[in-house]
Nucleic acid binder design. Structure first.
Lengths: 248, 248
DNA sequence: CGCCTGTATTGGCCTGACCAATGGAACGCA
DNA sequence: TGCGTTCCATTGGTCAGGCCAATACAGGCG
């Protein structure tokens, strides 16, 4: 039949769902368009309506279509590109987001930290100092520092968000490359920046914590821009340069 | 019909799926165990077998269970904290995170918006007004409003973060419940709050935009606290109450 | 011209039924 | 006694048909 190796592992609905996904991928149903009515699909594919419903639900759970009562099933995304991956987020945007979010997180943390948190963060700062000496240049302590602050907010949603942004930073090839270049090109110790954040937390001063964290990430942003020299990213640089002033 | 008045406007199967996921998360069905038979679940939850099948398929597509013909549905993973799901984030924390993040997003957006953005956001505000009249109380326009602002930041990382937080809000059973209660209990129109944000964006005033957005979400936070009355969540309320002052 | 109402269409959900795969218990044989 | 075979209750897979509620759109009314 169809060249695609059919995995008819039982479950008619899976079979149908695969076919429908193939239809979406083929462009037959662009984003925003409506799928045929359930009764119609049932007839077209020679299955019962419950089976059609099951297949549509499978698509719905995967975030491909949205079902509107009394109206129909509408395509809201095409298969293939998952929005979750986020591999294509430019490094600048990632850092800009971190600047804003982690700034707020630091401010909140300043009003929430206990002595244990402070002790741990202090330990991490000295760890970062040691890490910076090492030419191999890991960023484990740096990452741990930021996550410790996120954790000190006592807010899971904030913690997970910041963790995800770090994960994206590490995952994105472009981002990793840029950060690596920025790091090697710019060996000046950022210990003072971290220390400033630490001091603000010790003082339980939200405003100072926010300012220190933003200053730190603004510096990272700067080093990113510095590393962004290839003409391939000239465009990005131009845009970024325009934004740059806002954070200093 | 059934005595348990669940007002989950859409899709019975989603309701059931949420409940089943909650059961999984509760540890009632460890990995490897078998779920009750479809017919049994249908009786337990007072729904028909097709509906149970739809819910089970939803779990299956999410990779939580595996269905074996003639045998049953077996748990193959727990909903716990695979990076995307995050079902266990309390509603308060979610909203607190949104307050901070969306506040910054609004500020950034204020310096980035163009006239088209403003027009779209203005349209959504009037849409929200209409939505509020409707006792069924959808939040589509509300969601679209917040996402439009996130989009106006021209920062993919920020947009995706905010989108994810909304998704969590909709997904989390506890969060959905609380928001539903808050919504019905607190019918006062939030249109003015949205309008304030819009005005700040029109004026390209970052500070005002941040303040307006924070005020809006602080109000949401308040209504959440108002809805949090059961003694089961007394603890959360106590903690939340302490945090509350910071945002006003 | 716009609002309003009626009606066809569409999804939501249910009842009841039959088939096929499974798996364990009862059974029979060595 | 032990093991293999058979039988059948259980369970998922699928279908047919039906009724309700929400929606959309056309045609009529003011």
């Amino acid at each position: 039949m169809d060249g695609t190796t059919y995995q008819n592992n039982d479950r008619l609905y899976q079979d149908l769902a695969r076919k429908l996904i193939a239809e979406l991928a083929s462009g037959k149903f662009p984003v925003g368009s409506r799928l045929p009515a359930e009764r119609e699909l049932a007839q077209q594919y020679a299955v019962s309506r419950p089976t059609v419903r099951e297949a549509v639900i499978a698509l719905e759970v995967q975030g491909l279509v949205e079902v509107r009562i009394g109206s129909g099933a509408y395509v809201i995304a095409l298969p293939g590109k998952r929005q979750i991956a986020g591999f294509d987020i430019p490094a600048f945007e990632l850092t800009e987001a971190r600047l804003l979010f982690e700034g707020e997180a630091a401010a909140l943390a300043a009003s929430q930290v206990n002595d244990e948190d402070v002790a741990e963060i202090e330990r991490l700062v000295s760890e970062i100092a040691r890490e910076n000496q090492d030419p191999r240049g890991t960023v484990k302590a740096d990452r741990a520092f930021h996550l410790a602050i996120a954790k000190a907010t006592r807010n899971t949603a904030i913690y997970e968000t910041i963790e995800k942004l770090w994960a994206l930073r590490d995952t994105s090839p472009e981002a990793a490359l840029l950060h690596e270049k920025a790091r090697t090109a710019n060996v000046k110790p950022v210990v003072e920046e971290h220390t400033a954040v630490l001091d603000a937390l010790k003082a339980r001063d939200p405003k100072a914590a926010r300012a220190a964290m933003r200053a730190h990430l603004a510096a990272v942003l700067d080093s990113l821009l510095f590393a962004t020299e290839e003409k391939a990213v000239e465009e990005a640089r131009r845009i970024a340069e325009a934004k740059r002033a806002r954070y200093r």
